[in-house]
Amino acid sequence: MPTEAPDNAPQNAPVLEVQDLSLRFKGAPANIVDGLSFAVRPGETLCIVGESGCGKSVTALSLMGLLPRGVARVMSGTAIFGGQDLLALPQRALADLRGDRISMIFQEPMTSLNPSYRIGDQIAEIVLRHRPVTRTQARARAQEMLERVKIPAASNRLDDYPHELSGGMRQRVMIAMALANDPVLLIADEPTTALDVTIQAQIIDLIEDLQKESGTALIMITHDLGVVAEIADRVCVMYAGRAVEEGPVAAIFDDPQHPYTIGLMSSVPSVGPRSGRLATIGGMVPAIDNMPDGCRFAPRCPFAGPRCDIAPPLAELGPSHRAACHYAPLESAFAEAAG
């Protein structure tokens, strides 16, 4: 396989390192993703958190080479995976990687499974595409994968069509497909958002177990801070196309630095006893034709000041914990109100 990571790579070298990624939709005056950098290591789970339109899903699509051609394009950046830049690879090479070394799970399994093929055949197809195996071997692998994702009576399910399965079972099939070729990197885009809470718990459990078994690096895209707390090692908070804060999961929850992170966390109702009215972030995400030049959160930020006309860089505020705010830590800049 031409894309295998070199054997002499140190164990802790990132599986994927994205630097200064910028994406833009055709005709848009500003970047939809702007100068994004992150890295994920073997066995590590990186959660990318943000609300609709923050650019988290387009980022994933760009890494997979799945951005719609002629609609969106890469303005800058590199994404080094196994010594190669994903953003510079030709489509053929990317197609060899997808479903093999890098896999993706989408939010809505019904739209990502082909409704007119049996699920066993769909999993076997992925194995056949990337491995020198026979049809029988591929089918055996499909059954093995269905067992690994704990689909009951897997051998009887191989010939089911997607519509015969429940939402949770379909998502298990998607996971089986994604992991069929033992990928080095798995990207999951809101994999449990469409599921009920008890089914979500099953799927998250499953993803965590399989990841532990295989040592796959996982990039999980989600808007749910509960899921983040559950599964993440590191967290990258995105707002309007930029990373506003990044760090280990404990630092993000215990020492949140960016006003957007703080606002987002305090807008989530708690499952514990009620503690008064919810705090809110006023206003809404700026439209792409109305992006501020400086900090993109400034128009909604209760702390915004004159310095925010200049985009703040991600600055180190703790061990591998960085935030993009001129006024962080906020309590020292706004001491008068802190008391």
Binding site: F253, D254, D255, P256, Q257, P259, I262, G263, M265, S266, A279, T280, I281, G282, P302, F303, P329, L330, E331, F334, A337, A338
Partner: peptide, 13 residues
């Protein structure tokens, strides 16, 4: 730290 900043956010908003 989180408590302090949440309170600050609330007051400022």
């Amino acid at each position: 730290n989180a408590e302090k900043r949440f309170a600050l956010f609330r007051t400022r908003s």
